[in-house]
Amino acid sequence: MPEIAAPAITKPRRPNIIARMFRALRLPMNDPFAVAGLLIYLVFVVVAVFADQIATHDPTEILYTPAYDLAADLRPGQDDFLMGTTSLGRDIFSQLVYGSRSALLIGITAAFMVALIGSVIGLVAGYFGRWVDAILMRLADIAFGIPFLPFVIVLAAFLRPSIWNVVIAMALVLWRDTARVIRSQVLTLRTRGYVEAARVAGSSDVKIILRHIAPNILPLSFLYGSIAIGWAILTEASISFLGFGDPNSISWGYMLQDAFASQALAKQAFYWFVPPGICIILVVSAGFFITRGYENILFPKLSR
């Protein structure tokens, strides 16, 4: 008589690799906020990818009206400029569209680097413990002691202002949060019976980490990655606004700085600085909405 507890389950089909990866991401699809966040991202990703098609002008080109006047400080709708132009005669709508490209580029690369560096350090420190852990965690303490914005400004300025240097500077600091959290998670995973079982079965440390531990911390990596997206975009905006940004690439922060320097507020040119501000808020809060969804998955008790 076979045991009853396992009722007639037909052979579970092995899902294909894409479906499995998708499941490993554990996208928080049943949280309305998270879904809204994902939708916002989707819109901006589409805009960023098709920026060349969507934008009406080159965002850095100095434009002229059909009457061959400098197209400076035009209001939205005037002379077919959807959202008006800047004081230098550049098209605001096109800047906004291209701005999403650099925002996402920065956000996603920073998030990727933060999640990757943080996860690897957290895994190694948590799994091997002892002096490895001690050294890596003291490094994390140092990273915690670094004032974030000044460090990024100094490093970005020192290395030459470019968005990649901003990303590197952020990754060098922000890995600390991810590493700390992943390490503590690994510390508990390491004591799980099946991890010990893998050791007794003769599996190497690398194999144990990759097979038994890493899949369990993947959602946490994504959680911290999605937090980092918001941080990175905000930081880039701050740096550009302060004038330490890459002068050759259009970002929302650059637009704000440009507007500020041109005294847009005095000119009542709300069409100039409000849209990039809203875009920053949308993308950053979308990141936090997704974060919230991940948190509900990872720590279901928090939401009660």
């Binding site: 008589m1 076979p2 045991e3 009853i4 507890a5 009722p7």
Partner: peptide, 20 residues
């Protein structure tokens, strides 16, 4: 006792110990 206690979401008909 062979087997395992039944799943209470779908218990066996009649006496629940019958299968074992």
């Amino acid at each position: 006792i062979e087997g395992a206690p039944p799943n209470l979401a779908s218990p066996p008909a009649g006496c629940r110990f019958k299968p074992r």
